[in-house]
Amino acid sequence: MRRSLPHRTGPARAVDYGDRVKIALMDSGIGLLPAAAAVRRLRPDADLVLSSDPDGMPWGPRTPDDVTERALTVARAAVAHAPDALIIACNTASVHALPALRAELEPAIPVIGTVPAIKPASAGGGPVAIWATPATTGSPYQRALIRDFADSVAVTEVPCPGLADAVQWADEDAIDRAVAAAAALTPRDVRAVVLGCTHYELVAERIRAAVGRSVPLHGSADAVAAQALRRLGELPAPDAAPSSRLTVLLSGRDEVLPAQAAHYAEGRLLRTVSSAH
């Protein structure tokens, strides 16, 4: 019998879930693929629920209240499939909706947010660049993370207009233009680049080529996948027999993975899992 571990700010009691492992992930779009693939690598036996909002994306330009409302709707669609944990695989939703999601769902369902990997990127010293959406760049949220975790290093905030949308629609030319524009704003002496939007991890190799292959890129997918297992009191089991169950929800509708997912390695990995509703 597994027991989830409460969030450190939540009630100090555990919840019994039985023997199954089902993890839900939510995002405005296919930005949830890197974290879902990371879960799949750590626990190939986990059932997955992928809930996104193609009807309402992009979330970045929306007001905080609107983001919270849409995030709650997407989360509720996922929760209807009885997951053991919910990963908010979206920086924008984590910024604006994490408190509301935790208030509604915990302690019954652990909620794991996504935070830009500023702390580990800064650990080796600067300079550091943070690639993020225009809405996140310069935001009080990001500035607070810089102050808390990178106060002693030089940090350049790099807005990446259009990159998330280009990745969402697998628009090769638009991806190249957006990556090139962001690379031009990135100081040549940076020692690390933080990928501050989950969509960006899908084109990490293109970003690496643009900023220099010797520059480490720091995403959040592996960390949030590992945190989800910790919250459930589970250990990684990469050799476990794969689960054949994948539920895909697009604005609440039972669907299959969007065609654009096949353009990315993470999406192709998940396509090996059969659709199940």
Rank of each mutant, 00 (worst) to 15 (best):
P6I: 08
G10W: 08
G10K: 12
D16S: 13
D19T: 15
V21T: 15
K22D: 00
D27T: 09
S28L: 05
S28Y: 06
R40H: 15
L42Q: 07
P44A: 08
D45C: 07
A46C: 11
V49C: 06
P54V: 09
G56V: 06
M57S: 09
P58K: 03
T63H: 03
D65I: 04
T73Y: 06
A77H: 15
A82L: 12
A85Q: 07
L86T: 10
C90N: 05
N91Q: 12
T92E: 05
T92Q: 01
A93R: 07
A93N: 07
V95E: 09
V95F: 06
L101V: 09
P107W: 08
V115T: 15
V115C: 10
P116W: 09
P116K: 02
K119M: 07
A121T: 00
G125K: 03
G125T: 03
G125C: 06
V128Q: 03
A129P: 02
A132D: 04
A135M: 01
Q142C: 05
A144H: 11
L145H: 04
D148H: 08
A150L: 08
D151N: 12
T156S: 15
V158Y: 06
W169M: 12
A174T: 05
I175C: 15
A182K: 03
A182W: 02
L185V: 01
T186L: 07
T186Y: 14
D189E: 15
V194A: 03
L195D: 00
G196I: 01
L202P: 03
A204C: 10
R208T: 13
A209G: 09
V215Y: 05
V215L: 08
P216S: 04
L217A: 03
S220D: 04
S220Q: 02
L232R: 00
L232C: 01
L232W: 00
L235M: 04
P236K: 00
P242W: 06
S243P: 02
S251Q: 08
R253P: 00
D254T: 14
P258M: 10
A259T: 13
R271L: 14
S274C: 12
S275R: 15
S275I: 10
A276Y: 15
H277Y: 13
